[in-house]
Amino acid sequence: MIEPMLKVTGLVKSFGGLIATNDVNIDVAPDEVHAVIGPNGAGKTTFIAQIAGDLRPDTGTIQFAGSDITRLATPKRARLGLARSFQITSIFRDVTVEDNVAMAVQAHDGHSFRFWREARRDPQLRDPARAVLKQVGLDHRCDVVAGELAHGEQRQLELAMAIATGPAMLLLDEPMAGMGAEESARMVDLLRSLKGNVAILLVEHDMDAVFALADRITVLVRGRAIATGEPHEIRDDDEVRKAYLGEDD
């Protein structure tokens, strides 16, 4: 078996009395889409935040691309190839779409202690940015101020920024949230086109999207991973049905 891209072992995180992550183990292969599903408040975002580095776990380890990143700061993890999208869209609203993506490119083009040359005219940033925007189908919106994009487009932009960092792994927190059916379908197509080239940890409520994309699914309920398996196994798992899919038959 190939080394997993991400390996999380015995992760625990509590907020006061609430155990938001309760001894979670997960691994994601370099070419895998691993979905994490669970009801509201199950601890999915908390889990992602620990992998990304925004929250420190109480115990447990996180290994990424063969090294232990449990204590590493967020920006360093990102530079190792861990890119994320946020549940609540997080972009630079006051600059253009292309500026946003160019910043993502810049983040992975060496240090930014470069004080003199004008960044907005640097083809080394602009060309890759435009290429990624074309890939996600936003190239006709390059010069629009990001804050003026429609909601669905902002989600696409955020994904474009994640892709532009050239990541080894994407952490996606409900990328389809708030999208219409057509936009969701386009997002699924886009993620499918990425599949195989980058490891993806996908948190999503849209079950059609999850079953269309995921190689494996982990079900999180009240901080605990109650099941992990291939989509058909999860669909047929009694405990999962009871706890989450809500089918009492």
Binding site: K76, A78, R79, A83, R93, V95, M103, A104, S112
Partner: peptide, 11 residues
């Protein structure tokens, strides 16, 4: 504009 995003990008 958005420091959280900036850090998540790797700065």
């Amino acid at each position: 504009s958005n420091e959280v995003r900036l850090r998540a990008l790797g700065f």
